[in-house]
Each structure stands twice: as C-alpha cells, then as structure tokens.
C-alpha cells in the first residue's frame, strides 16, 4: 500500500477543506473543479497512459448524466442505483465506440475525429429524442434526502465528488503499477513494438476505453445530482470534451495527479479572471483557458507535473525524466 500513500495524503488534505469554514462559493468552485478533474481522470487513462487522444469524452459524461437523470425521473429508479447504472452506461459506450474504432484500426487523428463524431451524434440525438426531454432537457426533482442522493450541505457534495476523485486516483495508480498499465504505456509509446512483445493492443486499448468511459461517466452522474438538470448541450456538448482533455494536458498527461492539478489551476485562473473583471467581460475565462493552453504546450509539453519533475531532475543532476519502474 506504500504506493498509494501520496494519493491518501492528497485526498485527506483536501477532505479537511470544508472543516476550515470556507464559504459556500468556494466549496461550489471546488466541486465544479473536481467534476472537471474526474472527467479529466477518465480521459487520462485512455489518452494519457494509452496515447489515444479522444476529442469526444462528452459521449461518456453525457451518457452518465442522462442515464442517472432519466432513470430517476421517468422510471422512478432509486438515485443511487441510477448513479451506478450511469457509470455502467459510460463503460458500455466505451466498449461500443472502442470496439468499432480499435477493431477497424483507427489511430491518431482519425481516432480523435471519430470520437468527436460519436459525441456529436449523441448530442443531436439527445436534443430531439423524447426520452431525454429533447430541447427542454430533464429536471430532477428536488428531494434533499440521502436516499435520493441529494444533500442540504455543499460540504457533503464536496466530500462525495472528492471520494469519486479518490477512487479514480487509486484506480489510476493501480493501473500504473500493473501489467495492464505497462502494456497500455507500451501501446502509447510504440504500438508495433508492443504487438511484437505479445501485447494484444486492441484488447488493451478497449479495456482502457471502458475504464475511461466509466470514470468520465461518473463525473456526469454527479453533475446531474448536483445541478439537478441536464440538457443535450450540457451533457454531450464540446465544453466537457475540452474540459476532459484540457485538465490532464495542463496538469500532466499520463500522471496520476495531472488531471486534478490541471483542473484546479485552470478553474482557478478562470475564476480569477472573472473576479478581476467583475463579470463585466463574459467569456474572459475561456480566453484564459486558451492562453494557459498555449503557454503550457509551448513551455511545458508534459504539463505542470512534467515540468516540475524535469526541473527537479535537472537540479539533482539525474538524467531520468520518467519515474523509474522500481518502487
């Protein structure tokens, strides 16, 4: 369990935040940032470790959100069960999209475009289908009880999303230290070489996509329980696809803490920009996103965590950029 120590340390430190008496506004900010982090953690499993850059993780987020909402509202399913089924729905979409794309051998930008297309098809379908509420969207009834997975206190919601993030962190860390993780990274680095060494690259990518879909879907499920509303633009819109890939890229692709760090930094800067302009310049946070992305790609292509490890190894005079495999 030694390898999970950093994860526990970070999660426990973050869990203490509501006890410091921070305002609801701050808690709300953190919850939204953690939703982005969770979506990004899903993306990071497939994109960061597996090198399969998806532009359509909204497909998973939206499916999680809609399954959670529609099952509750239309079929009277218990919120907890709906939440779990939402995660399963994301995994299923991952299996279908992955099965279709990987089996037909789509790589690189083709893969990215196909995922984008899937998300768009789902968005357009959801905007007209009666079951999703079409253009009006679906509203989950306010019912502040534990049974309905709704809480009076923001702090409880915060702990809930933090717990989800913690699970995703643990999953990521365990993947990193497993044979599956080694093979997944091998696929990212050189697919042909991986195949020659006995790696079933299609199966490895497919498994990564299922895990990735499940994690990002969990972010969507939580989104519905927190905001109690979903429509096609929120569920399957490009905003969440961008959020899911931006947070790990800025924080550090293929690192355990990359998405979490990236989400806090990006969201923090966006919020800061909004505060400075006093709401006078709507959309400025998006400009900040863009600028941060350009700067990161320019100066730290391995993200903030990558830049940090590189700096540290330069100071310590060691050549290793990648964490050594001996633990």
């Amino acid at each position: 369990m030694k390898e999970l120590a950093p994860v526990f340390a970070v999660v426990i430190a973050m869990a203490a935040v509501p006890l410091l008496g921070v305002s609801n506004v701050t808690l709300n900010f953190l919850v939204v940032a953690l939703i982005a982090a969770l979506a990004g953690q899903g993306w990071n499993v497939l994109g960061g470790y597996g090198g399969q850059y998806s532009f359509g993780h909204a497909a998973f987020f939206g499916t999680g959100a809609y399954v959670t909402a529609v099952l509750q509202v239309r079929y009277g399913v218990n919120a907890w069960i709906a939440f779990a089924l939402g995660i399963g729905g994301g995994a299923l979409v991952g299996a279908v999209v992955g099965g279709l794309t990987f089996r037909s051998g789509l790589r690189g930008s083709y893969f990215a475009l196909v995922t984008l297309a899937f998300a768009e098809v789902l968005r357009i379908s959801a905007s007209v289908a009666p079951i999703t509420g079409g253009g009006v969207g679906t509203l989950v009834k306010l019912d502040l009880h534990v049974v309905a997975l709704q809480f009076q206190s923001r702090a409880v919601f915060y702990w809930m999303i933090l717990a989800l993030v913690a699970v995703a962190l643990i999953v990521t860390r365990l993947i990193e230290r497993s044979r599956f993780g080694v093979w997944l990274i091998a696929v990212r680095e050189n697919e042909d070489a991986a195949m020659a060494l006995g790696v079933n690259t299609t199966a490895v990518k497919l498994a990564a996509m299922v895990i990735s879909g499940a994690i990002t879907a969990a972010a969507g499920c939580f989104y519905v329980q927190y905001f109690l509303f979903i429509d096609s633009g929120l569920a399957y819109g490009t905003w969440i696809s961008i959020e899911a890939l931006l947070t790990p890229i800025i924080g550090g692709v293929g690192t355990v803490f990359g998405p979490l760090l990236g989400a806090l930094v990006v969201r923090g800067l966006g919020e800061g920009a909004r505060m400075v302009t006093g709401g006078e310049a709507p959309g400025l946070d998006l400009v900040v996103y863009g600028c941060v992305l350009v700067l990161i790609i320019w100066f730290a292509p391995r993200g903030l965590i990558g830049a940090f490890t590189q700096l540290r190894s330069r100071v310590m005079g060691s050549a290793g950029i990648v964490e050594t495999s001996r633990g």
Binding site: N190, D192, A193, A196, G320, V322, T324, S325
Partner: peptide
C-alpha cells in the same frame, strides 16, 4: 502478432523500435 509472441516467436525490428519515452528497464519490462 501478439499470439505469435505468446507461442514463443519473438522478432526484432530492422529499425530499432524502442519505447522512446521509457527507460531501458521499462522497455525490457514490457
């Protein structure tokens, strides 16, 4: 190919195909 490797047939590539971002040890680990 992956099943051939499992059977016990290994190949090297004419142009070396290392996992460039990984250490030597991690390469062999795969």
């Amino acid at each position: 190919p992956h099943r051939m490797a499992r059977y016990g047939i290994a190949r090297t590539f004419q142009i070396a195909q290392p996992f460039a971002g990984l250490t030597v040890h991690e390469n062999i680990l795969v």
